[in-house]
């Protein structure tokens, strides 16, 4: 039986956005007609996720406060869009595309390989907190599959060897 969202897990340490992000949000608000600042919610959540790694309840309440909207408006919104991690995730989140065109060129094998390599299942995070593996629906790289996205970067034409190299590069902080 599916329990309602377990919110005890969803409390993050960091409370406030950096000055740079706050300034960006202010700037974005000036770019839309007066009173339409709710438009900035998407960008604000993206900024928050970049800084905090994931979106906790505190973060959502905080953003609701920033944009002067009700917390439920943020909850409704964030739970609709799959890019937002509403549970804690590892430092690097691998989102592997599993949709048709990628499947035709072997995404299933790549997913299994990453599971094996990191010793986790889809949806899980490695014990050292470095990697989370997720699957994603079509990421718009159909001609360049199999592929995964991590921190807004695409890694395309994946092979097992490329996956090895990628994991190594992230582990040794050779890529951001």
């Amino acid at each position: 039986m599916k329990a309602h969202i377990d919110w005890s897990l969803r409390h993050s340490e960091k409370k406030e956005l950096s000055r740079a992000s706050l300034a960006k949000i202010d700037e974005l608000i000036t770019q839309v007609p007066e009173g339409k600042h709710k438009t900035v919610l998407m960008s604000a959540l993206h900024l928050a996720q970049i800084e905090f790694g994931w979106i906790s309840i505190e973060t959502m309440d905080y953003i609701a406060g920033l944009l002067k909207i009700q917390p439920i408006e943020v909850y409704e919104f964030a739970t609709f869009y799959t890019m937002f991690h509403l549970d804690p995730v590892g430092k690097y989140v691998f989102e592997v595309c599993r949709t048709g065109p990628c499947m035709l060129v072997g995404s299933d094998d790549i997913i299994s390989y990453i599971e094996e390599k990191l010793n986790i299942k889809v949806g899980e995070t490695t014990q050292d907190g470095m990697f989370t593996l997720k699957t994603a629906e079509c990421l718009g790289a159909c001609g360049y599959g199999p592929m995964l996205q991590c921190r807004h970067k695409n890694h395309e034409f994946l092979t097992k060897q490329k996956v090895d190299e990628l994991i190594e590069a992230y582990r040794s902080s050779k890529v951001e």
């Binding site: 309602h4 969202i5 919110w7 309840i57 009700q70 917390p71 439920i72 408006e73 909850y75 409704e76 739970t79 609709f80």
Partner: peptide, 21 residues
Amino acid sequence: ENRVHGVLNRGEQAEISTYIE
């Protein structure tokens, strides 16, 4: 004035909830 419940998640997973009970 202030709605505290709404529809969360989407598709088949959509649910009426307050999110934080």
